[in-house]
Design a binder for these strands. Structure first.
Length: 279
DNA sequence: CCTTGAACCTGCGGGC
DNA sequence: TGCCCGCAGGTTCAAG
């Protein structure tokens, strides 16, 4: 499911509900997801109190009092939902946290590509999942020159590079296509040729599209839900993603000649773009 | 080091 | 209706 806007939406929904709440019971309904759950997960979480919830890249960080972090990645199909007393577990509910106040936090993930970690806060960045992460796109460290520096010498297509979490975090298959459209850059352009003004434009486009998507509660194609079960609605504002054969929203060119938005495959993933507007 | 492709899973929609 | 195929928001690992 989730790219940065979806994960951010989930975190913003969780924080006010989980803040300062005590976990009284933990249900592990299977051994793990792609990897086994951490060995002392249940023992550590039961009786723990949550400090606050934050996000890094596409990871949900549930900070516990005492300096540990429950880290959750939603993979392709994960959801975190807030339920209340009397909730009956559903298929693919893998981890359930019961809070002292009666609230119930459910991690549901049909495809089980997600991950659950338990890390010491001060050592989080040493973990393999975090060690190589690039800058947060909505932070000050993400700029045209910073992006260009990370793309330098790369022969791979810019679309593929944008999805590399070492280049910039949080951008996935939807928002890579959308940001490149907004910046007027072809997804096939070699990454090393995105520099200077092009890199500036791309940084601006990434920030713009991510902020708008967050404001819309993310994009719901299938699985993404807000923590209260409501849908995101940014999917109604896509310019190119999933719109192969439709007219480009920006150009007035004749769709009969241009065939409109194109769908190609890069690195095994679908890419959508307008060959007229994006060079 | 870089790049590519497969693997990990389940579910859904389309075509026959 | 049923079956098979392709496709889906991500990451990781092996191989070239």
């Amino acid at each position: 499911m989730p790219e940065l806007p979806e994960v951010e939406t989930v975190c913003r929904g969780l924080d006010p509900v989980l803040r300062a709440q005590e976990i009284v019971r933990v249900e592990l309904r299977r051994e793990g997801l792609r990897k086994p759950f951490p060995p002392h997960l249940k023992k550590t979480l039961e009786k723990a109190t949550i400090a606050h919830v934050a996000r890094r890249a596409k990871y949900i960080l549930i900070h516990l009092r005492g300096g540990q972090i429950l880290v959750i990645h939603l993979g392709m199909s994960g959801r975190v939902l807030i339920e209340s007393k009397g909730y009956a577990p559903k298929t693919h509910d893998h981890l359930i946290l019961h809070l002292k106040n009666g609230r119930i936090i459910v991690l549901n993930d049909p495809r089980r590509f997600g991950i659950v970690l338990l890390l010491d806060a001060d050592k989080m960045n040493e973990h393999p999942a975090f060690r190589q992460l690039g800058p947060e796109p909505l932070s000050n460290e993400f700029s045209g020159p910073a992006l260009a520096a990370r793309l330098k010498g790369k022969k791979i297509a810019i679309k593929t590079a944008l999805m590399d979490q070492r280049v910039v975090v949080g951008v996935g298959n939807i928002y890579a296509s959308e940001a490149l459209f907004l910046a007027g850059i072809s997804p096939k352009r070699p990454a090393r040729l995105v520099a200077g003004d092009r890199a500036e434009r791309l940084v601006g486009a990434i920030c713009t599209v991510l902020k708008k998507a967050i404001a819309a509660g993310g994009s719901t194609l299938r699985d993404h839900r807000r923590v209260d079960g409501e849908l995101g609605y940014f999917q109604h504002h896509f310019s190119v993603y999933g719109r192969a054969g439709k007219a480009c929203p920006d150009c007035t060119c004749d769709i009969m000649k241009t065939k409109g938005i194109r769908r190609i495959v890069q690195g095994g993933r679908a890419t959508f773009y307008c060959p007229v507007k994006q060079k």
